[in-house]
């Protein structure tokens, strides 16, 4: 039984990461084509990326939109999470569903709906509107992570701050918010990458402006050269380091707060 599980586990993990691992040697090829294994190694396609202004502009646009969408979704999502966890009001369940919906709804449908609205209000080919559209898909991550963290928060900490002299807002800012920071950070990483690799909505509403995924997509339609795997490898490194930092923050927080949960038992 153990052997079967071990085989299953190995196959599953390989299935998950093998495609990513293949990208690394492919991106390091000297050749014009995607070849595996590469005959000679070089960083040629990495410099190709940095030498081509269309790639650089696409990356910069993606960063701009991604960072903007992260800020919007973090603010809106955190405020929403506070209301959904702390307040009692009519239609709370429905509102929760609405906030999570973009995660479940087929993106094509969402993209189409946004496209129709954007056409009506002349928002196609507008970077701010694109950023707002991206934050729609990013908000669910923030709402889910922050409200989960807020539910685990020991409310007596906030009470302690209140009785010791803090107004409700001060108590929240000084005591509750520090507890939420790791989940907000994790949520912002997810939100950023939700925007950064968003393709479908961007294709519908960007009106030809090229974000990095759109640039890759367009490239694949014309020709495939190893710049795409090189970009993919850099993106993977970026997201892995983002997740790493998030995990470090989460661990530090856990060390500080687990004393409370263990005392509750």
């Amino acid at each position: 039984m153990r052997a079967v599980l071990a085989v299953y586990f190995t196959v599953l993990v390989l299935f998950l990461i093998l495609p990513l691992i293949f990208l690394v040697p492919i991106s390091l090829t000297e050749s014009q084509f995607l070849e595996f294994p590469p005959q000679t190694l070089s960083l040629r396609w990495y410099s190709a990326f940095f030498d081509d202004p269309t790639w650089i502009n696409a990356a910069l646009l993606s960063f701009r939109v991604g960072i903007g969408a992260t800020f919007i979704s973090l603010t809106v999502g955190t405020l929403a999470a506070i209301a959904l966890v702390r307040a009692e009001f009519f239609g709370k369940t429905a509102l929760t569903a609405i906030f999570i919906a973009p995660l479940i709804l087929p993106t094509v449908i969402l993209a189409l709906a946004l496209y129709i609205v954007f056409l009506r209000f002349r928002l196609v080919d507008n970077v701010l509107a694109l950023t707002a559209a991206h934050s729609v898909v990013a908000i669910p991550y923030v709402v889910m992570l922050v409200s989960g963290s807020l539910r685990r928060f020991d409310i007596t900490l906030e009470r302690a701050a209140r009785v010791l002299g803090a107004s409700p807002i001060k108590a929240f800012m000084l005591v509750t918010l520090p507890y939420l920071v790791p989940s907000m950070f994790a949520a912002s990483i997810l939100a950023f990458f939700a925007s950064f690799d968003e393709l479908i909505i961007t294709l519908f509403v960007s009106g030809g402006a090229q974000t990095l995924p759109v640039r890759i997509w367009n490239d694949l339609g014309l020709k495939i050269d190893p710049t795409v795997p090189a970009v993919a490898v850099m993106l993977t490194l970026l997201s892995v380091s983002g997740m790493g930092i998030g995990e470090l923050i989460r661990r530090r927080n856990e060390r500080r707060y687990n004393t409370i949960t263990s005392a509750e038992v």
Binding site: L157, A171, P178, T259
Partner: peptide
């Protein structure tokens, strides 16, 4: 309101602020 009652309180689970050191906790009020 609670914060204006000027009452000291000790809680069952201590409820120390985990991100503040000992001095920071005592200094809070």
């Amino acid at each position: 309101p609670t914060e204006k009652r000027n009452i000291g309180m000790v809680f069952q689970n201590y409820s120390l602020f985990p991100h503040r050191n000992v001095l920071g906790n005592v200094a809070f009020p």
